[in-house]
Amino acid sequence: MTTLLTVENLSKVFHLGGSLFREGRELVALNDINLTVEKGETLAIVGESGCGKTTLGRCIIKAQPVSSGHVFYHRDEGGHVDLTTLGKREIEPYRRDIRMIFQDPMSSLNPNMRVFDIVAEPLRVHRLLRGKELEARVYDTLGKVGISPDAAGRYPHAFSGGQRQRIGIARALVLNPKLVIADEAVSALDVSIQAQVLNLLDDLKEEFGLTYIFISHDLGVVNYIADRVVVMYLGHVVENAPTDLLFERPRHPYTEMLLEALPIADPSRRKGRNKELKGEIPYLGNRPKGCPFHTRCKYAQDICRAEKPALRPINGTAQLAACHFAETLDLKGAYEAPIKAIA
């Protein structure tokens, strides 16, 4: 596998509430993020609200400026380029390769533009195609996401949520991108529609050879779609592992807590009470010292309160975790029966 994208020591700090009369607060939304995205994989970024997953997605594509660190994009023709250093003009070709799908199908489509124009907009802006060719490309893309070309003359309000999300996907795909960042792309949809869109994303990935960064809070969906999962907590990556390893045996207590909390659609696997779910996510502004998770961790020791654990491979596997006791803790996974070995 070849690497498509490398995120190196990426940090993002928001400055809040500064005014003439008092100094603003610093809010570290992303703290020293490192990860790689392999070509052709679906990398999921999960975490609860405020963990920085959306900010990370937006920083990668430079929809928001980063505070420090690098995002290297590896070009097909070899070599790589640091997206964070590029200017508005220079980044344009890469924005053709990296596209985004948004969460809210209501607000992500311009209500005053016809569906055709919404999908055609990126082609027009980049002056890639015009006239008949442009029409053909737009209709073709709409067809691929399951919107009939007859509907292209309508405005977004005539469509249901699921159909709008398909239109948003068409807008992302019309430029033939390599990497698609899907930010909670199915979260706002009803389950039956969500399943349609998940299948569609799967099909499109195969057909176009896409790579996805799939940002979500829903571990069930992530388990279904992702090859690898990055778990974030308070702006940190706490675990980064292939999906099966992570769900089989998480190496970070926060991952275990997420899996523990995940309701399973099967009453016979009901978890019952006495779950050890402690506390709530602290406010980002007063992040604890040491391990960011120690305030809620049932395994926390003194060292956790003093020293921040580094993200490191566990027992030489592809599973990375940032926990002082990652090797020794026996954390509970979410799969039904234990399986002997995973190839």
Binding site: V191, A195, G220, Y224, T243, L262, A265, Y335, E336
Partner: peptide
């Protein structure tokens, strides 16, 4: 159909 639409936790 509703139940089949929900992704179940499963090994790859």
């Amino acid at each position: 159909a509703l139940m089949n639409s929900v992704p179940r936790l499963m090994r790859k």
